[in-house]
């Protein structure tokens, strides 16, 4: 089974009627995949470590403060214990909302359909169509502390045609899986219209890059489509190669480029104008 085929097995939870109804009303088509809610493990770990360090500092200040000026000690104790209480409160709040202890949180799945997706939240089913998405910014960061890998953080910021915004992180669902699918579905919907629009002589702006019928540019520099022979993203930077050499411009952080897969597909198509899409 590839990742893009229906992804169900015997353990797949039943689809709530609310989801089915919402998907039907917005004409989302066939159900393709059900994704479990994020486990919030890194979030819990992060807040837990912060709260732990803060608690340790507070205990140290309490122990060391007995021989010093009373007024300073009281002020310091108030500051440190105040911060500790807040951090412990946030940690407890996150733990209570996590699938680790909350049955409700465990039931908040994401449902991917042919023409969009439904996110179950505490406010009910939220429905989104791929063709209502205007931009998706993606941020994937490998987190390290003192060289020790602490996992990868995924964040996708989606802006819709009606101006509303949706931020999807690892808290929402398995974004390592859903993130690329999101970019891919947006590209699938946008690519044919984008190519027709470009070939009619209209420009398209994607972040700091401007795409025209003749080429792609940034800040006044433009490379002709036919010159581009490769595109690469290394260490988060998108760069182009022409004539076997990597170009200094346009070079831009991938996180600053919306609809990244749409852009890559446009570049691939525009450098071969005779290729037909679909």
């Amino acid at each position: 089974m590839t990742r893009y085929e229906a992804d169900f097995d015997e353990g797949t939870p039943a689809v709530p009627g609310e989801v089915t109804q919402a998907a039907y009303e917005r004409r989302l088509g066939e159900l393709r995949q059900i994704l479990a809610p994020g486990r919030r493990s890194r979030l819990l770990f992060g807040w837990g470590v912060l709260a732990g360090i803060s608690l340790l500092l507070s205990l140290m200040v309490t122990a060391a403060g007995s021989s010093n000026d009373a007024q300073v000690v009281i002020t310091l104790l108030a500051v440190f214990w105040g911060i500790t209480v807040v951090l412990l409160g946030i940690f407890g709040w996150q733990l209570a909302r996590s699938p680790l202890v909350s049955a409700k949180a465990r039931s908040l799945h994401m449902y991917r359909f042919e023409h969009g997706f439904v996110q179950m939240t505490v406010r009910g089913a939220q429905v989104y169509r791929w063709d209502a998405i205007r931009t998706v910014y993606q941020s994937v960061e490998k987190i390290r502390a003192k060289g020790l890998p602490l996992g990868t953080r995924h964040e996708y910021s989606v802006l819709f045609a009606d101006g509303s915004r949706l931020n999807l992180t690892d808290v929402a669902t398995d974004m390592e899986n859903f993130g690329p699918v999101l970019l891919q579905e947006v590209a699938r919907v946008q690519l044919p219209k984008a190519l027709a629009y470009l070939r009619s002589g209209n420009p398209i702006v994607l972040g700091r890059l401007t795409l025209t019928k003749s080429g792609i540019g940034s800040g006044g520099d433009e490379i002709a489509w036919s010159w581009i022979d490769r595109v690469e993203i290394v260490d988060g930077v998108l760069r182009f190669s022409a004539g076997g050499s990597w170009l200094a411009s346009p070079k831009t952080p991938a996180r600053a480029v919306p609809n990244l897969y749409t852009l890559l597909a446009i570049v691939e198509q525009m450098r071969r104008p005779s290729t037909q899409v679909g």
Binding site: D131, R134, K193, A194, A196, I204, V205, L206, P258, N259
Partner: peptide
């Protein structure tokens, strides 16, 4: 970018 995408979508 959203305005630009909106023009062709």
């Amino acid at each position: 970018s959203a305005a630009s995408v909106g023009l062709f979508m």
